[in-house]
Amino acid sequence: MSNIWTIARREYKLFFFSPIAYVFLFVTLLLLGLFFYLDLFFAVTTQQFVPGAQRTIQLYIFPMLFLGIPVLTMRTIADENRSGTLELLLTAPIHDWELVIGKWLGSLLFFLTSTLVTLVYPLILNFQLDPGIDWGVVISAYTGLILLISTMCAVGVSVSSFFSNPVAAMFASLGMMIIFWIIGSPAQVTGGTFTQVLGYLGFPDHFYDSFMRGIIRAQDVIFYVSMTIFALALGSTSVETRRWR
């Protein structure tokens, strides 16, 4: 366990070593703030709608999932492989899975930090609105978001372990995320067992229909947790088989 923590801590620090993380945080949070301000502005001037607490998440989810996570997790293992530092990590007395989980945990902690900052918007909204906002929905939505981030980070780290070129890893994990984002769509139109299975695998379906509406269902939690575990297991196997290649 302590090995995982050692690796995660280094990984977390590394995000703040590269300018990419700062630029990502700055741009994402700036845009979020701008949209939030516009929402409030229109709500006040037109007096027609009340901005929801989930609005921030809706805006935040896309730059993070389709830019932030693929770009920032691309180097986690691919870079260690390219620069040769993987050789020293894999000859140190640590298990391959400890390395992969450590990398995932470090990435997850970084995106949690970023997500934590976005909580200021529901807080502001709470002060602006009377009688405040529905915190139950906020808690549920953020729980779902964290699970989604965890799964996506696991996919990113796992994909990274297959490559020694970070850019290739980035495109591959971006592709994976798009696939899992749209894979469930056919199930909404047609029936059939196959499309139903695909429908179950869709990442957004377990999020928008439940967590975003303030419902925390065990089946959705289990879905994200098991997808995370599956991706991490795949990543560990990939690191292990790397030795044999």
Binding site: S2, N3, T6, R10, S83, T85, L88, L89, A92, P93
Partner: peptide, 20 residues
């Protein structure tokens, strides 16, 4: 192969931690 993005001390401390 060393982690270029760490200081000498950080790197050695990191390796020392992995070695417990």
């Amino acid at each position: 192969p060393l982690h270029q993005d760490m200081t000498v001390y950080e790197y050695l401390k990191f390796m020392a931690d992995l070695r417990k």
